[in-house]
Design a protein around this nucleic acid. Structure first.
Lengths: 187, 187, 187, 187
DNA sequence: TATGAATGAGATTTCATTCAT
DNA sequence: AATGAATGAAATCTCATTCAT
């Protein structure tokens, strides 16, 4: 079904791994190209600039998370712990990429805008979960919902980048804590 | 009372403003020095490198937050909203600096270590607030407490950098939400 | 036969002339690149740093000396004066380069190691000239042989950098003296 | 008799040690001053520039060698090995300083001129040793004598900086070789 | 006499990006 | 479509040197 990966696909995949390992500011576009098996100039045939490549990587990352989440929801409906595990695992796998994202959001308009679109989608999803109608515009959201998402993300990052462990907090206990928070939110 | 600021103080103050406005990766040491009214070389008489200057700025930032917190606690004991306001205001004022911190933590050993020391101090404080004895080593901590801190920080940052507003969530309502979370934690 | 020179070749050639004229510490990599007709960054596409460029120049210099020596030995077998002339002329032509070498040997590990490899090769050659078997390891050498080489080199340098002339010693007489020393060594 | 050392003396002594340890291009004048227990600016009260300090150090070094040589000649007249030992020991003790000298001679006019004055003094001494009259002008010198001095210096340096040992030549045997050369010269 | 404090002028190196083929 | 080769424009950091006190 899926044909052999295009040059662009290979560039994105290599960039994902490289950003994840070395951070956005820790690599350069020449290395990204070489990591995919291409020459530097090829990079610029497929992306206008470095940021654009990151954006592409980030988009894929978001899609992958949604896909994983949907798979989980089919099997384990209403099991917060399963959701926690999917999300946290995804963050753990891509901890370096997340760190890069946190670098770019305040600096790059496009990345920021995409991150917000993504956030809106999450907020809409939460609203639906709680049986509320989502207004077409999707412009208004609940503070509680946003707080939940932010907590989720921040705790997942703390587990992913080793902060929890470094502070003497068992990462597994933190996952449990997260599941509890989700349940309280849903109640 | 306080003597006139030393060169180092002036460099730190100028670096704080500059990092806050332009991001860590958005300025260079020459600009930091010029912003304080000095020549580039002067910077290196006071800091071994750029990271060291950021670390110094960050230390001051942390001290300032603790001081503000202590002042508040004297007047408004047990008022979560007051605490929320102090912390969030501090994050709002220094949103760019916080963004830079998030850039450096995954990349810079020293910054990371200092951030963790700071986190341990916060965790010890929370433990004391709840009437628990803090073990001398201070090595073990409660998942709940860490989750609270992370939530606090992340929500404060979201208010600070305009993410909440951009998503159609009233920043003030988020503050209220945060205060509620604190109360639940304390109960 | 020889294709057009590569960028690296041109950089090395320009660096040889520039180091020779201005000394290692008397130029910078930007100038080396410009002297070859390239932009500064190009230099770093071909050498990791300034020292590496010097090392490359030095290697070429050593090869050139051996080649000149071999040519001479074919025609003028056993004529010490011919050998003296070849070596001294080579030193005269590259006096500034030799001075740079003397700067770097005590300071740079790689340059030193290469200079010593080169010296071992010379010592092996002398041993063979005197009809001795060179032990495979080539680890042990005669003090007399090393003394000859050092004398040769130092006297050649003194002629090359004008020291002899400045001291009222006729450079040509010094060459003759060197040839005499060689004959005594061989006897 | 000798009063307490002046600031200048202390600067020279500290510079000698520092140049010897770190090379001329491996230190800076600030460090030289600090090593003597003074502030950077003090350095420039006593020397017009960095080279001048090196020149002063070099002068002292030369004087010390002559003094040691004269002491030896009083006791061990006509013992080449004793002379070899004095000179080589002095070179060993100050190997780094000698390396710095070799750096500066081709580059610094004053250092070069002083080195040559010193060389003339050595040549005159050799001429006297062989019972020849030294012409008043001291302008003309024997190639044999200069060759001896250069050999002496170069071999001493090779022992001092570890080159001999690195090449598998016993430094002690080289000293013996040097003594032999002196005897042949004198014969 | 000595210095605390500062600096102008670079040297080395990096990197996002281009362009002729 | 891909690339080999190159680069302009910095950013980080160094160092010999100065000057008011």
């Amino acid at each position: 079904m899926a044909g052999s990966p295009t040059t662009r696909d290979r560039l994105i995949a290599a960039a994902a791994e490289t950003f994840n390992r070395d951070t956005y500011h820790g690599t350069d576009t020449n290395r990204l190209a070489r990591a995919a098996g291409f020459a530097p100039a090829t990079f610029y045939k497929h992306f206008p600039d470095k940021r654009a490549a990151f954006l592409a990587v980030y988009r894929e990352w978001v899609d992958a998370e949604w896909n994983a989440l949907e798979d989980t929801l089919k099997e384990a409906v209403g099991d917060p712990r399963a959701i926690v595990d999917v999300v946290v695992d995804h963050h753990v796998r891509w901890a370096g990429l997340r760190a890069s994202l946190r670098v770019l959001v305040p600096v790059d308009e496009q990345v920021r805008e995409f991150a917000r679109r993504q956030r809106r989608r999450q907020l809409d999803w939460l609203a639906r979960l709680r049986g509320r109608r989502v207004p077409v515009s999707g412009r208004h959201h609940e503070p509680r919902d946003l707080a939940l998402l932010l907590t989720f993300e921040r705790v997942a990052d703390a587990i992913a980048d080793g902060e929890a462990a470094a502070l003497g907090v068992n990462p597994d206990d933190l996952r449990t804590q997260l599941a509890t928070t989700v349940r309280q939110w849903f109640a």
